[in-house]
Design a binder for these strands. Sequence first.
DNA 1: AGTATAATAGACCGGTTGGTCTAGTCAAGC
DNA 2: GCTTGACTAGACCAACCGGTCTATTATACT
Lengths: 202, 202
Amino acid sequence: MSIETDTKDRILATARELFHGRSYADVGIKEICTLAKVQKGSFYHFFPSKQELAMAVIDDMSDDWAHGFVAEAFDEALPPIERLDYMVDAVYYWQKAAKNAEGRMPGCLFGNLALEVSTRDEVLRARLNAVFEKASARFHEALEQAVELGEMPPLDTAATATAMLAYLEGVILLAKTRNDPDVVRILGPAIKSIRIEQRHQN
Amino acid sequence: MSIETDTKDRILATARELFHGRSYADVGIKEICTLAKVQKGSFYHFFPSKQELAMAVIDDMSDDWAHGFVAEAFDEALPPIERLDYMVDAVYYWQKAAKNAEGRMPGCLFGNLALEVSTRDEVLRARLNAVFEKASARFHEALEQAVELGEMPPLDTAATATAMLAYLEGVILLAKTRNDPDVVRILGPAIKSIRIEQRHQN
DNA sequence: AGTATAATAGACCGGTTGGTCTAGTCAAGC
DNA sequence: GCTTGACTAGACCAACCGGTCTATTATACT
């Protein structure tokens, strides 16, 4: 082993970019191979199927997120509530940069994939759901601390965390549909106003 | 004219169901024709292209919405704030019924299509954006009245209306990814907590 | 009755899809 | 030097894609 090839990485990076900028169904393996300067044979040596490639792309981006700006935004050193604004800002600047570069707002890769494939691919759906649950957990931590510090009144922090994630995804969806990152900037901060009271049982 | 054929309607209804339950790219014209018991020739007699079919489907469902449960939910006779809860309830029961019938939560047709096609089809993107703007207007009316009646403090009703729509779409997205309509029931009511203050200029 | 036109039927088209298969290259271990 | 197994190359495949085309039928108008 250790033949030091970046073939797999090139495939992964190219697929990620194409899936994010367009869609899962719209991007073919041939196109990925061409852009990544890889042959079909090599592709199927590393990935048994398009579905497995999608899984790898999801995991790859999920890792990048967890160690990238999501980690920055949810830095324990920041006041909990500021973390929410940081996250919104990060999304805004990211989407704006992507639009400037490619002319179109790509939105959230996970949200895009989730709506596209989750009715016909249980495995991918479950994977994407896990990504959302991990993201929700970051919101949850922040809310728990905010309540603890008295910066927020007591509330159902778990449900509110999920609600905030939902809101963020919804804002990105609308912004993408309008092809205008400013939607994120304008609507985003209202994420802090979302509240779900305790004791809704269930 | 007036040959009294329901061919076009059958195509439309079938396409709507398939697009909603799966995705735009995943459903072929041949499959639509087979299910609708229509031949290719007839299909292309009524619709010049798949894109035009998608437009018709969007318009069709948009009309159904406008005159269906959205009209009910945003009934002027209801107290403004109750309309929000009504809307959330309607989404919940709809999605739950769909899941019971087909095993999977289809989510929102408009949201699904928006994320799938808006990076590669300007025409469809614009159409979907218009649908969202119309929906946002209903929220706006309700909020304006709520403020007028003193049921809500003054706020940027236009921005808040859009934010609420975004939240609803986000909740549906997460619910679909979890394949669990209960997410709508639990997170939905928090739509009333969303607030964007006036004077953010721009 | 005759004609124009709307509607239906389905064979057909070039191109593309995800995926397979065989042949061959390359570096490491013995 | 030979073998092994990871990797690359690319021809090939059946199935399917959106869309076109011609032929035929059914209906409305004159």
